[in-house]
């Protein structure tokens, strides 16, 4: 009895269609992606039923972390550059062009103006490790007020958003809101995460 030869089938299949699809998805993700900005703090936002989306442009974000530290961020690099120059003038600190460049690359920071120079001279890795204390906001020495005021001068279209941690004491947030209100900012956004709306 002759052996039955099982015909060897080629296992290579046509990859063209799969390849097409893979590249289609790749293109989609490449175009829609927006890289997560590196942030020095983790903020766990409270949830709400509000469904208004945060605008992408011209945002000034004031973050409050769990320990009550206040952090400041503006989204545009040019605004940051202008802002630091104005701030340097106000506080009589001079920043070198490379420090200003470095500042324009940091999305969020939380330190007093005096200690900012030291933070800017750190490299990326060390800066990531550094725990920033937050911007001074007490009534005697309110730097946040100057940051907000000068940021609005640098970019008048800025909208203000407050991103608070859910477990932070209201006291800190109240202080931030009072700082905003001192400058006649009575309308601002609170950043929240989405929660299902009850029926």
């Amino acid at each position: 009895m002759p052996k039955i030869k099982v015909p060897r089938k080629s296992i290579s299949l046509d990859m063209t269609a799969m390849c097409d699809m893979a590249f289609l998805l790749l293109t989609f993700f490449m175009l829609t992606t927006k890289f997560k900005a590196q942030e020095p703090i983790a903020v766990d936002m409270p949830s709400s039923v509000s469904e208004i989306k945060l605008p992408d442009k011209d945002m000034l974000t004031i973050s409050v972390d769990k320990k009550g530290g206040v952090f400041f961020g503006v989204d545009d690099q040019n605004t940051r550059r202008l802002l630091l120059e104005k701030m340097a003038q106000k506080y009589n600190i001079s920043f070198t062009p490379s420090e200003i460049q470095e500042f324009s690359l940091i999305p969020t920071f939380g330190a007093s103006v005096a200690s900012l120079k030291g933070i800017l001279n750190l490299n990326n890795v060390d800066r990531g490790k550094l725990v920033q204390p937050g911007i001074p906001t007490d009534s005697v020495h309110n730097e946040l007020k100057d940051w907000v005021m000068l940021a609005r001068l640098s970019n008048p279209r800025l909208r203000i958003a407050v991103k608070g941690d859910r477990d932070v004491d209201y006291d800190v947030v109240k202080n931030v809101i009072a700082t905003l209100q001192e400058q006649n900012i009575n309308k601002f956004n609170l950043i929240t995460s989405l929660e299902a709306k009850p029926q």
């Binding site: 709400s48 208004i52 989306k53 945060l54 809101i177 309308k187 950043i191 995460s193």
Partner: peptide, 10 residues
């Protein structure tokens, strides 16, 4: 997902 916001008028 872009974060949601709440508008507050004080």
């Amino acid at each position: 997902s872009k974060p949601q916001t709440m508008e507050v008028n004080m």
